[in-house]
Simulated scan of single mutants.
Amino acid sequence: MGSDRAPAVEVEGGVAACAQLSDDDTIVLVGNKPAIQKALARQKGPQDKIEIVHANQRIGMNESPVESLRTKPNSSIAVLAQLHAEGAIEACISAGNTGAFVSATQMRLRRLRGVHRPGVGIMIPTLHGPVVLCDGGANMSCRPRHLYQYAIMASIYMETVYGVKNPRVGLLSVGEEDEKGTDLVRAANGLIKRDSSIYFIGNVESRDLFHGACDVMVCDGFVGNVVIKLIEGMSGGLIRDILNNLKDLTTSTPELRQIAMRAAGQTLETYDFNQHGGAPVLGVGGIVILCHGANSCLGMTNAVLLAHKYARHKVNQRITERLTQDERTGNG
């Protein structure tokens, strides 16, 4: 219960997701029980698949992740991670404090076998299809082998969840040439290139993200988070500006205005992060889905469905099998 409009968004999204889940699935809402019950009372959908676990503490967005987890052991984030670690739930989803959620899940769930550092795989919609960027902010101090594993894990995620066969992997740099970039990028380039099982197209630039150059874009968490925040801010501003201009141009022609607004609405829907729910933390020993704090009810519903799909396609099992193979062969 950590979104900007908690618990209403989580509750409504959870109720809506119930209709699309299997009969034996259950949604567990973790947070202030009276507040959740009040929000549930306003919902008209079926609630027989919903359970509530009370947590009387909440970690704010501006609180220190580690310190808040230490001083608030009964926060919804801490309780959620513990429930997953105990096997009471099979996936955990949060739109709350990202640092606290990632820290709690990594402490409780540890890493999958063979994984050096988990990374966030963020799906970015483009006109050429989805692109998964990894890492989106979990690991700010990367080593070459971390980026190499992000290429593997994000490729598995892209292939199993989004159905992209043999996804093309690009390494984010300041130029396409192998010798360009930081020491980290150059070393990672060499590691990824040596693995013939990865469809590595080499270095890519940030402008390639929306030009269909690759299906997976690999970078460290600092760079990835900057890219995501820039896209979020710039796309919102550009789309609002375009909509305003369309209104001015089509004021005198109702038919043209209707067509223009329909096209604008379709574009907004394509690039709305709520359509994709959230982003998995790849490499952690569980199913952990990060959501935007501004997620709508639709976003929370889609986050539940993403977690369900992640489990159904056994993404973590595939990652473990692949990296265990690397251990045997000495790669990475």
Rank of each mutant, 00 (worst) to 15 (best):
R58S: 12
V102I: 15
I77W: 01
A95P: 02
V102Y: 01
H116Y: 06
E67R: 13
R111Y: 12
R42G: 10
F101P: 04
G119A: 06
M123H: 03
Q82M: 10
M123P: 05
K49N: 07
V66D: 06
T105K: 02
A95V: 03
V79G: 00
K72Y: 10
L133Y: 10
S75M: 11
R111K: 14
Q106I: 10
A55P: 02
I77H: 00
I50K: 05
A55K: 07
Q82I: 05
T105L: 09
R42V: 13
H116Q: 14
S68N: 07
A88F: 05
S103N: 04
L109Q: 02
E51V: 04
N97H: 05
V120F: 01
S76M: 11
E90S: 15
T71M: 14
V132P: 03
M61R: 12
E63A: 06
C92L: 09
L40K: 10
P130Y: 02
G136W: 01
A91T: 06
I124Y: 08
V66L: 14
R42A: 15
A81K: 01
A55H: 04
M61Q: 09
V132M: 02
R70C: 04
G121E: 03
L40R: 09
L80D: 04
L109N: 00
G60P: 02
N56W: 04
P65D: 01
E86P: 01
A55Y: 05
E51I: 08
A95S: 03
T105V: 07
N56L: 06
R58Q: 14
K44L: 13
K44V: 10
A85E: 02
N97T: 09
A85K: 02
V115R: 03
L133S: 07
L40F: 02
H54K: 09
E86G: 01
